[in-house]
Write a protein that binds this DNA or RNA. Structure first.
Lengths: 243, 243
DNA sequence: CAGTGGTCTAGACCACCTA
DNA sequence: AGGTGGTCTAGACCACTGT
């Protein structure tokens, strides 16, 4: 006999959606846990199953819930899975996805070049951290990354032994610096590789590489990280649907 | 008392969706025209309104139909604005968008190479039309396109003087061949340009070019056109938002 | 087996548009 | 006023999952 609190003019399925989203935000259920069954919800809120289903449909299409026939409806595990997979086909012959290893080549405190400062919304010459990283599959370099971070937020990284960490940076940002990446803007182009990156990627100078520039933001929309990645074009394929 | 022809194991709303998509592809209704009301469809197919609504929901979320409360449900006008703009920055200094001119270099009936046949869903060696086209801005080549069409659908193109037509192919497909492009899948990569395309694009052999492969489909999801376009990487930039 | 989500029905009533 | 899509009900039966 629960009550729907939000605006009475909204349809019931919308109000139920809002109520459930609120409870999810308040951790009534943990990620991976099941919410009550559709029957239980329709009893709790005195709604028909059709209305409950429509509310759940919305949360599923929002990527907040996940249905599993015969088992239940679950809170989606928050998985900021690297967008790499959308761009590079780092896969075995069998087509299974793999996270490339990470080899950090340098981490140094520097002052921001003007282009980087502008991307990160800092004053020119502001203190930043510059990191160069190589991603490898089976020992073969596939991606070379240049990463820039505002030092004010990421000072702790300089005192950390990054080699002992996993291959993903964003969990480290979260654990060591309390900085949570919520979303990112990426921008894609191609170029022929120069000698520096040719050597890093172990490909001939003049090969075609794809260049990905990414600005990562926190939930408040503030820039956290700017990176430029280069990878051999033969590892690269990006697909879109157009309507 | 219409019959749903497709696979009996599929849910009714799926089969109705397919049936409607087929009729839309066959021009039973013109773009902008209304389809029968939900009540009429549920009578015609002997389905409840809930099932009909669900089928229409799918077509709406596919961007094929458009609901207007109190008025009806309408075939969406295909605004199919060339996706070129999303990928290539063909713009004046002022930032205004321009459609590049089209220069058709060849149109010839050939048999399909196996890769093309596979993309178009044809048997290997099936009759197709191969077209080579150059897109130019201010007389400068910016994009070289290789276009493959199933001859069964596009025979009429061979008897047409394409030079007298506009720079966009899809309106020609529609007017001359009755083939309506509803959506497309594009896939993007990069390579260093060979001598043939280097000469076409008037750029040095070995420059980085972006390669776009596109499969265009009609409303029934049947392949209509496969094309591969190459353009100089410096004209190319693609942006994405990642949640 | 019992319990879950997935499909489907045959309505009712409402909000909105056109005339 | 009459017709449209939008919301909602109170069920039924099915397909799938776990024990």
């Amino acid at each position: 006999m629960n009550k729907l609190s939000s605006d009475e003019r909204l349809p019931l399925y919308q109000r139920l959606r809002d109520s459930l989203a609120q409870q999810i935000a308040n951790n009534r259920w943990r990620p991976g846990e099941a919410i009550p069954t559709e029957a239980a919800l329709s009893a709790e809120y005195c709604l028909s199953t059709g209305t409950v289903r429509k509310a759940i449909d919305l949360l599923v299409s929002d990527n907040i819930l996940e249905r599993q026939q015969g088992r239940g409806t679950f809170i989606r595990r928050a998985q900021f899975q690297s967008s790499l997979f959308r761009f590079f086909r780092f896969q075995t012959e069998a087509g299974e996805r793999r996270v490339p290893e990470s080899r950090i080549l340098s981490v140094e405190p520097v002052v921001a070049p003007s282009s980087v400062a502008q991307a990160l919304g800092l004053a020119a010459g502001a203190p930043v951290i510059r990191m160069v990283r190589l991603r490898l599959l089976d020992g073969q370099p596939v991606l070379a990354e240049e990463i820039w971070l505002p030092r004010a937020r990421f000072q702790a990284l300089l005192e950390l032994d990054l080699d002992t960490q996993g291959p993903l940076l964003y969990p480290i940002y979260e654990d060591a610096c309390g900085q949570v990446v919520a979303c990112a803007q990426e921008s894609l182009t191609a170029e022929t590789v120069n000698d520096v990156y040719g050597r890093l990627l172990q490909i001939p100078v003049g090969s075609a590489v794809v260049v990905i520039e990414r600005l990562a933001l926190n939930y408040a929309g503030e820039p956290l990280e700017w990176r430029r990645s280069r990878g051999h074009a033969s590892h690269f394929r990006y697909s879109v649907e157009i309507r």
